[in-house]
């Protein structure tokens, strides 16, 4: 069964013209010399030709194009996403979050007491005392306020850039 499946896969690749030069030559030899391969090839080729020549597309109603054109009359083409998504803003936001995470990580790690304990195997082990991390220093009001301020500033920057671009577009159109 697997051999059959394998043979069919290789023959389909050959029929689709997706085989490499060496493989193509090899399949051609198999078709020429082995009855099983030749029969299967003829069978698959017939299916391929049926699909190629006789598969038909259905037709929608006569009014279809008209209906579509009437429908699109209600809409405007939306501006390309590239024109209103500024990559620099996205990079800025990403940088902010990455820096925040890295900052927290550095702060958190600096609070950990790194002590080397002699394990039974003589290997070093890291003694991480999570109880000693002072979470109240991280999640206090000051940090929350700073986070909010930076988010608001970034938001305003984004809005300013968006409005500036829109104004520029309008000016260009009126010229």
């Amino acid at each position: 069964m697997d051999t059959q499946h394998y043979m069919e896969e290789r023959l389909w690749e050959y029929i689709d013209g997706a085989s490499g030069a060496e493989e193509k030559l090899f399949i051609e030899q198999l078709i020429a010399t082995q009855t099983e391969w030749r029969t299967k090839y003829a069978e698959l080729l017939e299916v391929h030709h049926l699909m190629q020549q006789h598969l038909e597309l259905d037709e929608p109603s006569m009014r279809f194009t008209q209906n579509v054109m009437e429908e699109i009359g209600k809409y405007k083409i939306t501006p390309a996403a590239q024109s209103y998504i500024n990559k620099r803003v996205i990079y800025g936001i990403a940088a902010f979050f990455i820096l925040t995470i890295v900052g927290f990580l550095i702060y958190g790690l600096s609070q950990v007491q790194w002590t080397s304990g002699g394990g039974s195997n003589g290997l070093y082990s890291v003694n991480v005392n999570l109880d000693k991390i002072d979470y109240s220093k991280i999640f206090n009001n000051r940090y929350t306020n700073i986070f909010l301020m930076v988010t608001i500033v970034l938001g305003l920057m984004f809005l300013d850039m968006y409005l500036g671009r829109k104004k520029k577009d309008i000016q260009q159109k009126t010229l």
Partner: peptide
Amino acid sequence: NREDAEEIAQDVFVKAYRNLAD
């Protein structure tokens, strides 16, 4: 059925039109 297919096809062309700038 054909009615639903036509609705989908119409929707496709409208979506394509609206996003043509993309």
